[in-house]
Design a protein around this nucleic acid. Structure first.
Lengths: 149, 149
DNA sequence: ACATATAAAATCGCTTGCAATTAAATTGCG
DNA sequence: CGCAATTTAATTGCAAGCGATTTTATATGT
């Protein structure tokens, strides 16, 4: 007799959102451990990666890249400002924009990021091709979900 | 002259963690919209899916399934208790365990979940095979990251 | 029996994430 | 020009999420 409920094979989308949720938590946990010696949270590190790619971005530009809004970014950037990683200043051309810039300290951390990313790549135990495929599939999924929201 | 920084091609692991982060946010946003009429948050829905599969689980069993610890689950389950979705009771055999059970209301919501999952599947614009592959890759990645944390 | 170790959940303090709202600057259009 | 609509950040209030610690219950060793 089967005493369990009838849902021994949960639906595919349930399995997918479980997997996505858990993979993201696992990723953030790995980064958290690696970033602790640098006194950085995962979100702060994501913001730094955005700025390392291109400095002096407005709050909304950073938000567009990370899919975060000002309610999340403003306090986060204030903490990064207090920690001496970035500066925030109103743009002179358009005072609505707050331009976020790396400090020397924020820029210097980039050289330490290589070791972190190497460690994550190593822990993933995946080939470059596998990770590339996964990235492409995730981006496709995200774009579809964002379009049809 | 190239005035941008030298990081026009960020490292693969950076791209991957951006994609994973953004895909998870997009997924939770889609669910949030769909779950709002049911007065459920995404996390609460994940817990319900765990209990629909098998009822009467301890806090730590739910936590193992979702990779969440008691510091996250205790307040979450209290809110679900207050909303009348689950009950929480100390196990009689081992009073250290708190057993979480669905109420009639929590059980009834399952019939409404089908429409939610159909909508997510539709919004994903992916085939069953694609989503299955993605789920497998994410699970593999998570397992590797958890092992080598 | 009793101290010690282990296990499960709860608690505290903090950061993240978002919906809804507000404030200020800019744009556009009569 | 004048003024409504739009854009950008900030603010508020709430729900996750977790490291560190505490509380309570059970297991283990001598």
């Amino acid at each position: 007799m089967n005493t369990k409920s009838r849902h021994d094979t949960p639906r595919l989308d349930a399995q997918l959102c479980f997997a996505l949720y858990a993979a993201n938590l696992a990723m953030s946990k790995v980064y958290r451990t690696l970033l602790k010696p640098l006194n950085l949270t995962y979100s702060q590190y994501l913001v730094l990666m955005v700025l390392w790619q291109e400095d002096h971005r407005s709050v909304s530009e950073i938000g567009e890249r990370l899919q975060l809004d000002s309610a999340t970014l403003t306090p986060l950037l204030k903490r990064m400002d207090a920690a001496g990683l970035v500066t925030r200043a109103r743009s002179r051309e358009d005072e609505r924009h707050v331009v976020v810039s790396l400090t020397e300290k924020g820029r210097e951390l980039e050289s330490r990021a290589g070791a972190v990313q190497d460690a994550v790549f190593c822990a993933s135990q995946c080939s470059v091709d596998e990770l590339g495929d996964l990235r492409d599939q995730l981006q496709r999924l995200r774009n579809h979900l964002a379009e049809n929201a």
